[in-house]
Design a protein around this nucleic acid. Structure first.
Length: 455
DNA sequence: CTAGGGTTACCG
DNA sequence: CGGTAACCCTAG
């Protein structure tokens, strides 16, 4: 029975944002032990808590607490700390401090206290226990902020910067990566296994294919239906400052998506695989192959049911993208070092878009997707390997805003040469204005600059 | 990551 | 066909 409770709790936590359910309360009510299953459940709960606070638009010291708890849980699970985690912590800490920088003069408000509380005490504890959350960036923030106490100009600069946005970006990325790492919930795994078994039992003649599709369709429909319910539970228009975001909806299909990762195994994908085996010892090779197939079906069917998940921009490339129908294309950084999010934003309509697309209509039952509040980054196509590597990103002309932002960015350092001297990179310029450059890679910036100066 | 050469698409 | 803009590839 206990197991059953846990499964349901896990399922609920993974799939729903319900303001009436407080994940941590739910977890403590279950009185979990320390087994690896429970660990996963706890991690789910913390992730859900973080999601919730993001949705409320609350990025505060509670978020810091959560990130610290998450770190400890991951430590127990012997997982490595991800860059996004460190960055999220660092920028959240900065944001927490920034909110005490409202007076014009550093000494007027509670800035000093905040520094003491967050950077000396809280982060002091982290340092003491040798936490990996203490990253280079974090230390840099620490010195900068402490210096700002003396240096009014620096204080002004920090005071006016938009830290919140970066914090949200990293938190979102962290969530995405962690949910992906968790894989399917137990309940979903069981459902999948049943489905596979049923399908295996039905292996007769070629009707099998058809039948498999029908079953998968059922499955898919059920998922979509329950998503609609999820959505109904969500508070509307709560994103106070326009920053509230709920990208975590995305994990709905990821459950399946993660069970079967893309063909070629990148490092992360191997990790995911490994964890799943540990988690689902009974899922043997045969099941895995079957699951791979299942994902194919689901994606295909979902693509048919939900045209909005298709790429809007390039109808002619639709086939190539079928693999990526999963709402947030789960492409992660190849190296994992850059800490920069590579997502695909639902492309906003833009001036340069020529053709009129009649797509974008969804059938009534499909959950409407709100535009993602956080501008997302384009993902450069994966190098090599992938059969689709010769597919180009659609050409998108630079808007005057983008050009202006690029000029600003470069101006800061005089010229390209100084860029190098200052140890700044195109990437820094991009990160200096992530909203505007959301759809540009740092290489794009460089290329654009090249043809701007007529090189 | 960057610099710089290459490719693709479009235009007159 | 040459010029141009955006994008891709890859050595270092």
């Amino acid at each position: 029975m206990e197991i059953f409770d846990n499964w349901v709790a896990e399922f609920v936590l993974r799939r729903q944002h319900n303001p009436r359910v407080l994940p941590t309360k739910l977890i403590s009510a279950l009185q979990l032990g320390d087994s690896s299953d429970c660990l996963k459940l706890k991690i789910s709960s913390v992730l859900r808590d973080i999601s919730n606070s993001l949705i409320r638009g609350a990025i505060d010291e509670g978020t810091l607490d959560l990130l610290e708890v998450l770190e400890k849980l991951l430590l127990q699970q012997h997982s490595l700390l991800m860059e996004s985690h460190k960055s999220a912590y660092c920028w959240t800490a900065a944001e927490c401090t920034l909110r005490f920088m409202w007076p014009l003069i550093a000494s007027d408000g509670f800035f000093t206290e905040a520094l003491e509380r967050i950077w000396t005490k809280r982060i002091g504890v982290l340092k003491e226990r040798g936490s990996d959350l203490v990253s280079r960036d974090l230390l840099k923030w620490e010195t900068d902020l402490k210096r700002a106490l003396e240096d009014p100009e620096l204080y002004q600069r920090i005071r006016e910067s938009n830290i919140r946005y970066t914090a949200i970006t990293f938190l979102t990325q962290l969530l995405k990566e962690q949910w992906a790492l968790l894989g399917s919930s137990s309940l979903e795994s069981v459902v999948q296994r049943r489905f596979l078994k049923r399908k295996a039992d039905n292996v007769e003649e070629d009707i099998v294919d058809k039948r498999g599709n029908t079953n998968a369709a059922d499955e898919s429909t059920r998922r979509l239906e329950s998503d609609t319910i999820d959505n109904a539970n969500e508070p509307r228009g709560e994103s106070g400052d326009g920053n509230g975001n709920n990208r975590e909806n995305d994990n709905d299909v990821e459950g399946v998506g993660c069970l079967v990762n893309e063909k070629h195994a990148s490092e992360e994908e191997q990790t995911v695989g490994a964890q799943e085996q540990e988690y689902e010892p009974s899922l043997d090779k045969g099941d895995e192959t079957a699951a791979r197939e299942l994902k194919g079906y689901l994606l295909e069917i979902q693509g048919q049911i939900d045209p909005s998940t298709r790429q809007r921009e390039e109808p002619n490339n639709a086939i190539d993208h079928s693999v990526n129908i999963t709402p947030p294309p789960t492409r992660m950084n190849r190296t994992g070092t850059s800490g920069q999010d590579h997502n695909e934003a639902p492309q906003q309509d833009d001036v340069n878009k020529k053709g009129s697309d009649s797509q974008g209509t969804w059938s009534g039952r499909v959950r409407p997707r709100r535009p993602t509040p956080v501008p997302l980054n384009v993902s450069p196509l994966k190098k090599g390997g992938l059969a689709k590597s010769h597919v180009r990103r659609p050409k998108k002309f630079w808007t005057p805003e983008e050009v202006e932002a690029l000029r600003e960015g470069v101006k800061e350092y005089g010229n390209t040469l100084c860029l190098v001297l200052y140890g700044k990179s195109w990437k820094d310029i991009k990160n200096g204005n992530p909203a505007v450059f959301a759809e540009r890679t740092e290489v794009d910036l460089k290329d654009k600059w090249r043809n701007l100066v007529g090189g």
